[in-house]
Simulated assay, not measured.
Amino acid sequence: VLNFYTHPEIEMLIIVSEGMFSSYTQSFKSAMRLSEYCMQKLKLGNVKSRDFLEQYWSIDALCKAIRDYASLAHARKGEFVLADLLR
């Protein structure tokens, strides 16, 4: 049995995709929720809606964001993350 941790939330993958991971984690992480950051700083609407997600992501872009996030936010030893499912 393998346990996979399915974080991050989709908003974090959008932040990574937009190249704003360090900006969020250094300046806004404790003060602003991910969804608020996406709306206020990235000027993106309802980032959890199906319509938005289908328009925003291509398969390649989503896979890249998942891999990029895995390299930016390191998992604990022995934990599997979404990027591990792509291998």
Rank of each mutant, 00 (worst) to 15 (best):
V1T: 12
V1R: 10
L2Q: 10
L2F: 13
N3R: 15
F4N: 13
F4C: 15
H7S: 04
H7R: 14
P8F: 00
P8K: 10
P8D: 03
P8A: 05
E9G: 05
I10D: 03
M12V: 01
L13C: 04
I14V: 12
I15E: 06
V16N: 08
V16I: 09
S17Q: 07
E18C: 15
E18W: 12
G19T: 03
G19S: 01
G19D: 01
F21W: 15
Y24D: 03
Q26M: 10
Q26G: 03
S27Y: 13
S27E: 12
F28N: 13
F28M: 10
F28G: 06
F28L: 12
K29M: 09
M32W: 02
M32A: 03
M32D: 00
Y37A: 05
C38N: 02
M39N: 10
M39V: 11
M39S: 13
M39P: 01
Q40I: 12
Q40Y: 12
L42R: 11
K43C: 05
K43D: 02
G45P: 07
N46W: 06
V47K: 01
K48L: 10
S49C: 09
S49F: 08
R50H: 07
R50N: 02
D51C: 10
D51A: 14
L53F: 00
E54N: 08
E54M: 13
E54K: 15
E54R: 15
Q55E: 12
Y56N: 07
Y56P: 02
W57C: 03
S58G: 00
I59G: 03
I59E: 13
D60H: 11
D60Q: 15
L62V: 01
L62F: 05
L62D: 09
K64W: 10
K64Q: 07
A65F: 04
A65R: 10
A65M: 05
I66Q: 11
R67H: 09
R67C: 07
D68T: 12
Y69C: 01
Y69H: 15
A70D: 14
A70F: 00
L72M: 14
A73N: 10
H74D: 08
H74I: 10
H74C: 05
H74N: 11
H74P: 09
A75D: 05
A75E: 04
R76C: 00
R76V: 00
K77F: 01
G78E: 08
E79H: 14
E79L: 01
V81D: 08
V81H: 13
V81A: 06
V81R: 15
L82T: 04
A83S: 14
D84E: 11
D84C: 00
L85A: 12
L85N: 08
L85V: 04
L85G: 14
L86R: 14
L86A: 06
